[in-house]
Design a protein around this nucleic acid. Structure first.
Length: 426
RNA sequence: GGCGGGUUGCCCGAGUGGCCAAAGGGAGCGGACUGUAAAUCCGUCGCGCAAGCUUCCCAGGUUCGAAUCCUGGACCCGCCA
């Protein structure tokens, strides 16, 4: 099968929500190498899977022969993109700078920086805004913006209508981001900006600015906001955002997030987040339709994305742990090595046998329950398990016979949340 | 600068002296069903085994008693200048 055109591939993957001028973009892409960019702001010490989608989109263009620029917003991160809901809290400069470094390191594996005409670039918009004086900024950038249009932007107008309003700083955000596009056009001949469709206002503000200043019509491409089937936020679990940083979201938890994907959306996720071919994905979608309980598509999705972010070794570990914890086999029959490996993947803690912990102690100690009251509730609701056996009473204590290989317990709250406990001391 | 309105639990939002640990909705969590899916139904949802403790922007005060009243402060919004 020959490679489809990059735009056709993106369209097939459901990654094109809106574009400035699709035909013009196609002509430019066909005429030769296009330099494009996508930026993310450092608002946390790690990127999450929404950012991953943007980086993957850049990577898809790069594989099609174009040159990606990954921007990390060291400057824009100091101001804050207006959220429709509320004003952001300003972060300290050195904190933001630290996050810029982390995000930069985190994105490197997804793009090819190793030479060639279309080697990727990593840039920080603080490099060209830090030295800019307020007067220059207002004259060179601000003068080209009409407040009426700025107010019309979705996020701004929503905020204007809210009780909280919007600060001048956040209101100015779109000028900063627009200036990035202008600067990247001048420095690198960058002619396309991609981003989430929630960034559409900022993307077009950029093309407008370049048009005014340079007389060139550049391109913008917005990827759709990925949601769950009911339209609610994607990328959250009980414990919060799904991060790429393994310290914040363990590879096992990352794998579990994907394997729990809804049937109705697993195809969408496969298309957007994996490098699997059209044929492979079509086949997985067919399997989901015909034998959903086999969860082949979810498995392929989890394997693929986890592999991309954390590597194949982590995939193997996560799969092995998942088999052990969710499999049909008795936990007691697992050998010590397999069990230890599985427990290493899930949250776990060690407590002393002398403590005589009850099920409530164990649930709280392992972090599975937020408070003793919550732990009791879980037991009362029938949601507490030790070694896959339901615990019926609050004052249950592990007997020696309950310890797997003489020291471990596998706790579970509900169907999906597992934790390990090691009981130390003879 | 003037005048008016506002700040309640994760979110929205009722509550204007006791019946308020605080209605209702959403989200979340657990169960049933199933497939580590969705939908649906049921339950639950400050901390504590309990007695009780700590909450309704912050600090004081009035009162037997305050989320509710008073004083001061912070922050937000609107209109006018």
């Amino acid at each position: 099968m020959t490679e489809p055109h990059i735009l056709d591939d993106l369209a097939w993957r459901g990654l094109i929500a809106q574009t400035t001028d699709l035909d013009a973009l196609r002509r430019d892409l066909d005429a030769g190498m296009v330099t494009l960019y996508s930026g993310i702001d450092p608002t946390a010490p790690s990127a999450h899977i929404g950012h991953l989608l943007q980086w993957l989109t850049l990577a898809r263009f790069q594989r099609a022969g174009h040159r990606p620029i990954a921007l990390v917003g060291g400057a824009t991160g100091l101001i804050g993109d207006p959220k429709p809901t509320s004003e952001r809290t300003l972060n300290d400069r050195d904190v933001v700078a630290g996050w810029v470094d982390k995000l930069g390191a985190q994105l490197r594996p997804f793009l090819d920086f190793s030479g060639g005409d279309n080697a990727a670039l990593l840039v920080n918009n603080l490099d060209w805004t830090e030295g800019l004086s307020a007067l220059d900024f207002l004259r060179d950038v601000g003068k080209h913006f009409r407040v009426g249009r700025m107010l019309a932007k979705e996020a701004v107008s929503r905020r204007m209508e809210s009780d909280e309003g919007i600060s001048y700083a956040e209101f100015s955000y779109q000028l900063l981001q627009s200036y990035d596009f202008l600067e990247l056009f001048r420095r690198y001949g960058c002619t396309l900006q991609t981003g989430g469709s929630d960034q559409w206002g900022n993307l077009t503000a950029g093309t407008d600015l370049v048009h005014r200043v340079e007389g060139r019509s550049l391109h913008a491409l917005g990827t759709p906001l990925i949601t769950k089937a009911d339209g609610t936020k994607f990328g959250k679990t009980e414990s919060g955002t799904v991060w790429l940083d393994r310290e914040l979201t363990s590879p096992y938890a990352f794998y579990q997030f994907w394997i729990q994907a809804e049937d109705a959306m697993v195809g969408t996720y496969l298309r957007a987040f994996t490098w699997l071919s059209h044929d492979e994905i079509t086949e997985l979608e067919r399997l989901t339709e015909e034998m959903p309980q086999a969860r082949e598509a979810q498995r392929a999705l989890a394997r693929s994305v986890t592999g991309m972010v954390h590597g194949e070794v982590e995939v193997e570990r996560a799969e092995a742990a998942s088999r052990a914890l969710f499999g049909r086999g008795e936990l007691a029959q697992l050998d010590a090595g397999t069990l230890a490996a599985a427990i290493a993947e899930i949250p776990s803690y060690t407590t002393a046998r002398d403590e005589k912990p009850t099920i409530v102690d164990l649930l709280v100690g392992s972090g599975l329950s937020a408070s003793r009251g919550a732990a009791r509730r879980t037991v009362a609701e029938g949601g507490a398990y030790v070694n896959n056996t339901k615990v019926e009473t609050e004052d249950w204590e592990p007997a020696d016979g309950d310890l797997l290989h003489g020291r471990w317990l596998v706790l579970r709250r509900g169907k999906r949340n597992a934790a390990g406990v090691e009981l130390a001391g003879a």
